[in-house]
């Protein structure tokens, strides 16, 4: 089960990077997210898996698909035009992978080669996560709610200037038409 989900997660991730059309990238990301939810279930993180499917594969993906459809399926060249960057970018990513692998294998954590300790029944359940949010992590919880509020206000503020620019454009057009008609009247 782990290997199937892992293979699908890596395949979805590779699809995101290697697809030319952003729409297919978004669809590969959905595959990736759902297989990650399976991995979360294998790690006994039930609430996290449910949140992953509902928030990511549901809401965020709808937002992405909406924006891709709005902006249009722009075909994006896969390769970098700058030859130095074209070779340096995969090299950098490979170096990062090797470095992370060394960090994981050489971390010296004793429990890393086990299946993890034996867990109680409530591990990862919504009640335990909720209790932690309201007791131990109350301050991060409030900060995150404030962040969501700021992001919502920011999205509205980002959408507004274009509307006012359209209005200015319309006003300019109206005044230009009026001046043209007054000139023709003379």
């Amino acid at each position: 089960m782990f290997w199937i989900a892992a293979l699908m997660a890596v395949g979805g991730a590779a699809g995101v990077v290697l697809q030319r059309n952003p729409f297919y990238s978004v669809l590969s990301l959905v595959v990736h997210l759902i297989s990650l939810a399976v991995l979360f279930l294998l790690l006994r993180a039930e609430f996290l898996a449910a949140a992953q499917v509902i928030v990511y594969a549901g809401a965020v993906m709808v937002l992405y698909v909406f924006v891709v459809a709005y902006v249009g399926g722009l075909e994006d060249p896969l390769t970098e035009p700058n030859p130095a960057l074209r070779t340096a970018a995969p090299l950098f990513a490979g170096a990062l992978l090797i470095e992370l692998g060394i960090a994981i294998v050489g971390s010296g954590l004793k429990a890393i080669d086990t299946h993890g300790p034996h867990l109680g029944a409530g591990f990862g359940s919504p009640s335990e996560i909720g209790a932690l949010f309201l007791t131990k992590f109350l301050f991060p919880f409030e900060v995150v709610s404030l962040l969501l509020l700021v992001a919502a206000v920011g999205a509205v503020a980002l959408a507004r200037p274009a509307a006012s620019a359209d209005r200015e454009l319309a006003r300019d057009r109206v005044s230009a038409g009026m001046s043209a008609s007054s000139q023709s009247g003379d």
């Binding site: 890596v10 990077v17 990238s25 490979g94 994981i104 429990a111 299946h115």
Partner: peptide
């Protein structure tokens, strides 16, 4: 499955994402 495999997989996904950020030029991707 050992925990270390999950960590290796997460490192692999992170690096694929980093590769995408470095190579792609569309802000959406």
């Amino acid at each position: 499955m050992d925990i270390v495999w999950y960590l290796v997989l997460s490192a692999l996904i992170f690096c694929i994402g980093a590769l995408g950020v470095l190579t792609r030029r569309s802000p959406l991707v």
